[in-house]
Design a binder for these strands. Structure first.
Lengths: 228, 228, 228, 228
DNA sequence: TATGAATGAGTGTTCATTCAT
DNA sequence: GATGAATGAACACTCATTCAT
């Protein structure tokens, strides 16, 4: 189905990439409906129009598919973040920078649940190669994003931008979990008395990340600039 | 291993509480060795010296056992935090307060992996009652801890302390994951080129939480003091 | 609760019988709501206001409780049948006799589902003693009922009445199952095309039992009067 | 035991049907030894020489396997019944017809215990689809058998044959239970005094079904020919 | 390459029954 | 006699992964 474009020379390699992407797309679409543990490999394959075994020609494990998906979404998000920062009229205040970045997070909410599990469910059952590839890509983008942040703010020292992205990652993961609890818990928290435990993702993330941006400069003299 | 405590027939409320605690202890000990998903209920019961069915007399599901465990460890930690804050000569600087609190986190590392999964694995499959009980306790302690922090720092407004504990929770969860990755990933990150992705838990937590403490005061005029 | 009557001499033995009856009552009430396999012994005990262990002082197994219940309901039904037959102006035609008897079945519908399982679920896990007791009672009532039927019709030979009650038992059991299928099946059978498979209990039972009454006389010369 | 048939990879529709049949055969053989509730799915698979999961490729639940088995045996029996009736020199007397049919029942005794539980254990836990399929087949065969019976006897009106097969079903079920009680009960009934409660399956079935055949004609004027 | 049939390890939970108190 | 805490056997079903075709 499809195949509107004429077969090109690089057909084999390209077709492979297309196939892989189609599988990732199917998985992504399915993840709109079900959580990762309930995502059936068979369903993904079916949705992508291939047989189950075919999926395993492209991804050695279910987790590697998930990790590839996270990688892709992460890449898109970094593209957005970097573009957004580079578009800004420097120098950005901490709050302005945080708002800009959080806005991009908002635009990539599908990434969030996956990011939240990437540390546990995904990276747990993946070959060293896949892990290395993923981390290498993550490193590259983290450094790029860090550099963009440093450019945009003008007050950061080299390396501080990347470090802030790491903290952003931690904050996003931690806060997302609290903001989007399991249905039972959500119902419980709806009660007025539990108001203090409710977390509004964007508000809190903006608050916390702004504080971090302020803090990284303020604490510069107390903590070592580079981590071990 | 274990079985040391095997009092037959827990009839009094106290004996029952002991039995429940023994089961939680067995689970906790087992969790030193295996991750939550690999924790077999049968093994926990065996370690506690009771039959499998007995465990279900005290905990309706595996998850409720886990949640009770988290609740207990969380309670202990809060005890420690509050005591530590109340012992301090007020007013504490943000950095001093952060260091004090992070030090208590260090003393309760067994709580960390459980806390990290409480939002996903545990709260997902628990009855509304159990969830409510857990959250009620969490709320109470969070408010207590928040009050203690407000007392210790002297610069926070009412409610800000509790809010900071929520952020602390998010940070701990997020950073712990990054600091303690799966074995494969840990191996990958050992390579020097990945240095920038490595997270040293205490350092980063101290840094981030300090920043938050500073930020909550600094941003007071930008953000609404109370969340919806 | 209760105990309005003054304690009598025979208190112990009587009280025991009362207890047993209370348990049977509780079971009977519960069986209005759930099927036998889903009937929890714990629930029956709770409903009867006693502890689980107490139930086992009166009935050695769950099945023996069920069998006792069937015995009691069966006894009541036989009372009704015999009274109804004895009240009739003899001689009754086969059809009239059948209608009279089926009417009593209608008045004891709670017996039906229990009767239907007595052969499978109940008698399977019961001690020889209990089985013998139940069968002895059944035999006595069957013979009594048979005699009543012979008196009422006037055309039957000795023993044929009892034999007809055995067939009635078989018919009731078989037809009840078909008339009250599992919910899924019932839904399926509602479709018009399945009309031919639907069984209206009373109609069919009346029809079949009438035929048997006619047949027993008509076949007298073909079949041996007494079965092996 | 078994495993004799273990063709790998059933790809064609035919091979699949074979596989399903092999599983049914294994189940049938096992049911010679144990009752349905004690029949372990794992054992059936093992006997058929396949893995447990493979069984679930062919039957979504244990009960659907049982139902398929009943369907198959029922089909064979109907084949036999219809053939037997069609072979007869019409018109058959009620008694002759009954004897012919009961003889076929005798030749398919393996069907009996399954038929006896199909209404309770099997149809209870089956998807609507499976139930519909089974009932559709049952309807078809019942109508066919009914037509054959009408042809053979020559005295029945259209539809009466099918109705009689329904009654036959009820009788077979009810009488089989009484004729083949649980071991404990059987032992009890062996005592001479319980002679009146003993049921000899063939004798009683012949007797009852003959009576029905006679009755359906005799009662024609009393009861509506077609049931609601 | 693609397929999809086959695999089989893995486990939380129920509940009738027992028995220490 | 009454209690109710303790027992523990028993089991269908899933689903990621493999591999014959």
């Amino acid at each position: 189905m499809g195949q509107l474009t004429a077969p090109r020379r690089a057909r084999s390699a390209e077709a492979k990439a297309d196939r892989a992407r189609a599988l990732e797309d199917a998985a992504l679409a399915a993840l709109e409906r079900v959580a990762w543990p309930d995502l059936a490999v068979a369903q993904v394959a079916r949705d992508a129009g291939v047989a189950k075994g075919t999926l395993y020609l492209y991804f050695p494990t279910k987790e590697s598919l998930g990790l590839a998906l996270v990688g892709r979404l992460l890449g898109r998000w970094f593209d957005d973040v970097i573009a957004s920062l580079d578009l800004a009229r420097a120098p950005l205040s901490p709050h302005a920078a945080a708002e800009r970045i959080v806005a991009t997070v908002e635009r990539h909410r599908t990434l969030l649940p996956l990011l939240a599990i990437s540390g546990t469910l995904l990276e747990a059952n993946v070959a060293a190669d896949a892990a290395r590839g993923f981390k290498a890509e993550l490193l590259r983008r983290t450094l790029e994003g860090g550099a963009a942040l440093e450019r945009a703010m003008g007050t950061l020292r080299p390396g501080e931008g990347a470090r802030l992205f790491l903290h952003l990652h931690a904050l996003v993961t931690g806060l997302y979990r609290m903001a989007e609890p399991a249905p039972v818990v959500r119902a419980v928290l709806r009660t007025p008395r539990f108001r203090a435990l409710r977390v509004e993702f964007t508000t809190e993330l903006t608050f916390a990340f702004t504080a971090l941006l302020v803090g990284v400069v303020a604490q510069r003299d107390r903590l070592p600039a580079s981590r071990s």
